[in-house]
């Protein structure tokens, strides 16, 4: 019998996240190469972009639905998914390694007797076995790792796998399963949005400022550059500790780990703990007046000058380009 691979689609505020489609795409690829059957499950109330999953090569989706499931409930989501995995003899489950995925996947692993590997940046099937690659020590090393359990869960680092459209894709067949009185013993009662528009963990481009910014008022410049690039604002720990920026923006070993396509570091020295969080960015730009600053050792492009002169010029140049 062929193996079954299941993808969990994560929704927030009724919209499936882009990183879930990355997982769908990987499942399609693994299924095509190894003859696995694919299945998709999502949990929530009304979901607006559910049919989009079809574009990545999935024909059928099971949607567990209830009012009380609109927001995340660790207890209810765990129960629904674990039961599904056991009842349908699923072999492999893919989650996106978002804050929800990271919270939920380990709970499901215990209740459905799966082994788990989180934060994978690569996953290959080899003679019936699965080998995952993932960063450890905040990206200072990588491991190749496998599971000895029958059932396996992998969570995938967002922005690493591409959500590739499937040319032969058909329409998705959506089955709605109404859940009666879900177990919401633990549940999200409320979501407080932070004022920033984009989160560093989800942004394609990040503009970060460090102590070289000299003061919180100068982050206007960073915000302006970010806005011109449709980017998120990030920060070093030095400026978060100083209270210039909120902790949610901290990039690094004790902040967020990010892999955007472009990371622009302004007035950041490049301490090992900072680089740990952003070294996997596809392109890195450093603006720092000290040409010996360690950040230049991992930057693709650098300007060794005064950020107060360079950043405004960069804003002007980008605006020119976009207009």
């Amino acid at each position: 019998m062929s193996k079954k691979i299941l993808v969990f689609l994560e929704q927030r505020e009724g919209k499936i996240k882009k990183s879930s489609f990355e997982a769908v795409s990987l499942a399609s690829k693994l299924a095509a190469e190894n003859g696995f059957e694919k299945e998709i499950v999502t949990i929530g109330d009304a979901i607006e972009n559910l049919t989009e999953a079809a574009k990545y090569g999935i024909e059928s989706i099971r949607h567990f639905k209830n009012n009380d499931l609109a927001n995340y409930s660790p207890s209810a989501y765990t129960e629904i998914l674990s039961n599904y995995i056991k009842e349908n003899s699923i072999d492999i489950v893919l989650f996106s390694n978002t804050s929800l995925g990271r919270d939920l996947a380990p709970r499901v692993s215990i209740n459905s007797e799966c082994g788990i590997i989180v934060d994978c940046t690569n996953l290959t099937a080899l003679n019936g076995d699965f080998v995952a690659t993932r960063p450890v020590y905040a990206g200072k090393a990588f491991i190749e790792i496998k599971l000895n359990t029958q059932r396996k869960i992998f969570t995938l680092r967002p922005n690493v796998f591409t959500a590739a459209l499937d040319q032969k894709a058909k329409n998705a067949n959506i089955t709605t399963v109404v859940v009666n009185s879900p177990n919401v013993k633990t549940r999200v009662a409320n979501f407080k949005k932070s004022e920033g528009k984009l989160d560093v963990a989800e942004a394609e481009i990040i503009v970060s400022g460090g102590r070289g910014m000299k003061g919180p008022e100068n982050f206007k410049m960073i915000e302006e550059l970010a806005e011109s690039l449709n980017a998120a604002v990030g920060a070093s720990r030095a400026v978060v500790d100083a209270g210039w920026r909120p902790h949610g923006e901290q990039v690094g070993q004790t902040g967020k780990t990010v892999s955007p396509s472009l990371y622009i570091a302004c007035g950041i020295s490049g301490a090992i703990q900072h680089m740990a969080g952003m070294s996997s960015a596809k392109y890195i730009v450093a603006i720092n007046k000290d040409k010996e600053a360690p950040i230049f050792s991992i930057a693709d492009y650098g300007i060794a000058g005064d950020l107060f002169e360079v950043v405004p010029a960069l804003v002007t140049e980008i605006k020119k380009l976009k207009s």
């Binding site: 080998v131 090393a141 190749e144 790792i145 000895n148 930057a299 492009y301």
Partner: peptide
Amino acid sequence: VSEIIKMYSPPAKNPGRIL
């Protein structure tokens, strides 16, 4: 439940250009 097959250093990145 898991087994590390190997651990390795990330491929060194070539320092880029100061423009």
